[in-house]
Simulated assay, not measured.
Amino acid sequence: MTKRHVLGISGGKDSAALAIYMRDRHPELDIDYFFTDTGEELPEVKEFLDKLEGYLGKPIARLNPGRDFRFWLRQYNHFLPNPQSRWCTRMLKLKPFEEWVKPWLASGDEVTSYVAIRADEEYREGYSAKSDNLIVKLPFREAGINKAAVIDILESSGVGYPKYYEWRSRSGCTFCFFQQKIEWVRLKERHPDSYEAAKALEKDALEHGSPFTWSKGESLSDMEHPARITEIKAEYELRRLRQKARTPQNPLRPLKTGLEDIDDVYGEDEGNGSCLICHK
């Protein structure tokens, strides 16, 4: 029996920090790092993966689901994924991982998967292993590492944050349905081609009878009207200021203004309940 160690990189801050933490704290472990590429990732994510590889000193395996988002959209009757039916997570994230480790598990190897769930995320649960020789460990929860400690790990390593945190609060696909409306607006501003592609997918889904739009209760075509964009930006600024007023000031850690610093505000908006696989 061979003991193997794997760690999934989502392109987000927590999984990157865990990879750095495990490399520095447990150099005796030969960890295989992997990233599941849906084919619909932000360019900033790919840039960040290259930077992280440099620090880790070894490649991050890119797992390919084989069949892309558009194939599975047709399989699911052109219905867009949504919080009640996260087929994108199952088919484009979980399934490629399970196929990747299947030969090891079938040969009797013990595979330990390290997952980046923090100590301050009591509401989150890790991946449920389907094999007795697949072991899931949560190093951050075991070590009491919270969000502030994750930030310290990224900053002290020199790797820092992915650039998309300048305008977006999570990694994942360009058209992740857990985005806030402000994030859709900023996707249009930063990556207009990706916004247009998401709008075309939404139009196709609606024409086939899908009851869902990417953003709850509002199509991307309606959202992109100039007056609506102005309204969305004003609503977001009010939420940001409310959150800032509730946050204790720490002179040793100046308050940042990026979307990643208002995670709590998701409870007031449509971003609550984000994907447990993608957004970390």
Score class of each variant (00 low, 15 high):
218 E>S: 10
193 D>L: 15
57 G>T: 10
19 A>Q: 11
185 V>A: 14
33 Y>H: 07
183 E>L: 04
97 F>K: 02
45 V>H: 02
125 E>F: 06
82 N>K: 01
131 S>L: 01
189 E>L: 05
178 F>D: 00
37 D>K: 02
143 A>L: 07
80 L>A: 03
240 R>K: 11
89 T>L: 01
186 R>L: 15
226 P>V: 07
158 G>E: 10
190 R>P: 02
276 L>Q: 12
61 A>S: 15
271 G>Y: 01
127 Y>E: 04
161 Y>H: 07
176 C>V: 14
149 A>D: 10
109 D>A: 13
83 P>N: 08
33 Y>Q: 13
93 K>D: 08
145 I>S: 03
34 F>G: 01
176 C>P: 09
57 G>R: 15
214 W>D: 04
220 L>I: 09
105 L>W: 01
215 S>T: 15
34 F>R: 00
107 S>A: 15
35 F>L: 11
84 Q>H: 08
126 G>I: 12
68 D>W: 06
2 T>E: 15
249 Q>I: 15
264 D>C: 06
146 N>S: 15
24 D>T: 05
216 K>H: 10
173 C>R: 03
128 S>K: 12
113 S>K: 14
238 L>S: 06
35 F>M: 13
123 Y>N: 07
19 A>H: 05
216 K>V: 08
232 I>H: 11
111 V>H: 00
169 S>R: 01
213 T>R: 11
14 D>E: 07
171 S>H: 04
222 D>W: 09
236 Y>V: 04
276 L>N: 07
166 E>N: 02
147 K>G: 07
243 Q>W: 04
122 E>L: 07
163 K>P: 04
62 R>A: 07
51 K>C: 08
165 Y>P: 07
52 L>R: 00
172 G>L: 08
139 P>G: 03
104 W>H: 09
151 I>S: 00
25 R>C: 10
91 M>W: 02
112 T>N: 09
108 G>E: 04
161 Y>C: 05
207 E>Q: 06
238 L>Q: 07
99 E>L: 14
240 R>N: 10
113 S>G: 12
19 A>T: 01
276 L>P: 02
91 M>K: 14
206 L>K: 04
47 E>P: 11
70 R>L: 14
70 R>A: 10
120 D>P: 11
25 R>W: 04
142 E>D: 13
156 S>I: 13
238 L>G: 09
40 E>S: 12
178 F>C: 01
225 H>K: 15
206 L>F: 15
42 L>C: 09
134 L>N: 04
209 G>D: 04
224 E>S: 14
280 K>S: 06
109 D>C: 06
86 R>C: 13
126 G>M: 14
246 R>G: 11
66 G>H: 03
16 A>F: 06
130 K>W: 00
78 H>P: 03
180 Q>T: 05
219 S>C: 04
